[in-house]
Design a protein around this nucleic acid. Sequence first.
RNA 1: GGAGGGGUGGUCGAGUGGUUAAAGGCACCGGACUGUAAAUCCGGCGGGGUAACCCUACGUUGGUUCGAAUCCAACCCCCUCCA
Length: 416
Amino acid sequence: MTTVSSDFLRIIHDRGFVDACTDTTALDALLREEVVSAYIGYDCTAPSLHVGSLVSIMLLRWLQKTGHRPIVLMGGGTTRIGDPTGRDDARRLMTDAEITANMAGIQSVFAKYLTFGDGPTDARMVNNADWLSTLSYIPFLRDYGRHFSVNRMLTFDSVRMRLERETHMSFLEFNYMILQAYDFLELARRDGIRLQMGGADQWGNIVNGVELGRRCDGLSLFGLTVPLITSASGAKMGKSAQGAVWLNAEQLSPYDFWQFWRNTEDADVGRFLRLFTELPLDEIARLEALEGAEINEAKKVLAHEATTLAHGEAAALAAAGTARAVFEQGGVGEDLPTVTVSADDLAAGIPAPALFTRAGLTVSNGEAKRLIKGGGARLNDTVLDDITRMVTDADLKDGEIKLSAGRKSHALVRVS
RNA sequence: GGAGGGGUGGUCGAGUGGUUAAAGGCACCGGACUGUAAAUCCGGCGGGGUAACCCUACGUUGGUUCGAAUCCAACCCCCUCCA
C-alpha cells in the first residue's frame, strides 16, 4: 500500500474506505498543502438515502474533520437522464416533481452528518440542474462532445455490460457519463473543486471527469472511490426486516435502524466499526477480538454509534432500551411500532391475521395466515396457532397487546 | 425498410392446447439449532375466504376453442443479421 501522510488519506486508508485513486501521491501532496474541496454526487431516485450511501457520507465527514471542504452534489439534472451504471435495463424516467420531492428528503440526511455554512471548511450543497438544464445542444457538443471518444465510451463497464448482455441502451442513457464528467469540470471552474469521490461503480464516470478537466482547462483533478460494501456472506448490504435500511427516520425508525446494526454478521463487525463509526482504531481492534457471544457487545457498540450519528444519542439510547426490554427481558419497549385500534373494533373482536396486517407485521391477510400456520406468530408471547382466532379486549395486558412475527419483529396494539 | 429470434411471477429461467398460480435456482419470510451471528436442515413464498371456493397473472388488444402462457391477427418493445 502506498504510504500517505495527509490526515485525510491516512485515516481513510486505515479504516478501509479506499478502493481506488487516480493519483494517490499527488492527491496526498495536495491535501497537505491546502484546503481541498471534494464532492460526491447523489441521484434523487428515492426519498431518502440508505446504508449503501453511508460509506460515502462517512467519507465526506472525515474529509471535513480533517480540515477540508465537502460538497454534496444533488443530481437534480442527471436524475432526469438516469444512470445506467450497474443496471441492465433503463431506469423509469422520473418526473420533475418526484425528483424535487426526493431531493428534499435526501438533503435532510446530510444535515446530520456534515456542518453546512459559509466558512472555508463548511459543507455546501449544489444541484447540477442549475447548469445542466440550461445547456445548449450544439455549443455543448462542439465544446465538450469532441473530447469524448465513442470507441472508449463503449469500453466502460456501464456500457459494455449492456452490449455484452445484448440489452437495450438508449442514447439518453449513453449521455449520462458525459454529463457527469461535465459536472466535475463545472464544479472545478466554479469553486475550484479538485476531487470527486464515489462508489467503486462510479470509477469510469469519475475518470471521465478527471480527463475532461485536463483536456479542456489543463486542470489536475483527482478521483477516489470507496469499495462496494457487501456483508461477509456475500449479500449486498442494506436489508432490514422492514426492507431497505433508510437513513431518514420517516422511512425507517431509529429502533429498526439500531436493530439492523445489532444484527450484523460476526465477520463484519470490525470492518463496519471502522467504516460506520468514528471510534479509535485500537478500541475497534479490542471489540472485534471478542469471541463467541461476547461479540454481541461489539455489535451493540456499533449499533449505538451508528444510530447516534444518524438519529442522535437520545434515539440510540431509546432503541437500546427497547431492544433490551424485548430481547433480554421478553417484555415490551416504547420504540416498538404501535398501531391503535378503536375500542369498539376491539370489543367486537378483530381476526388475528387482520390485526397482524394492520400492525404492519405482514403485508396481507394471506401472509399473516401463513405466518400463523408456520408457527411464527405470537400474541402476548404465546404462540398463536389458530388462524380464526379473534383478538378482543380480553387480550389486553396493561392496556396493550404485543404481537410478534418471528423472534425479531414485534408490534404493540393500543386502544384509542 | 427486409429476414430471423424474443418479451413468463421480486429476479434469473423452464414451460408450446387441459391435473399450470405456472418446474428449478436466487432473493425474501417463518421454524429448528444458536449468541437477536454465520453455516446447515425443514416449511412457506399473487390476492380474498374458517373452508368449499372465488378473483387476478405469462408485452398490449382482439380472435379461435368446451378449454390458451401455449394457436391466430394486429399493435408495442428488445436482440441479431441484411439493405
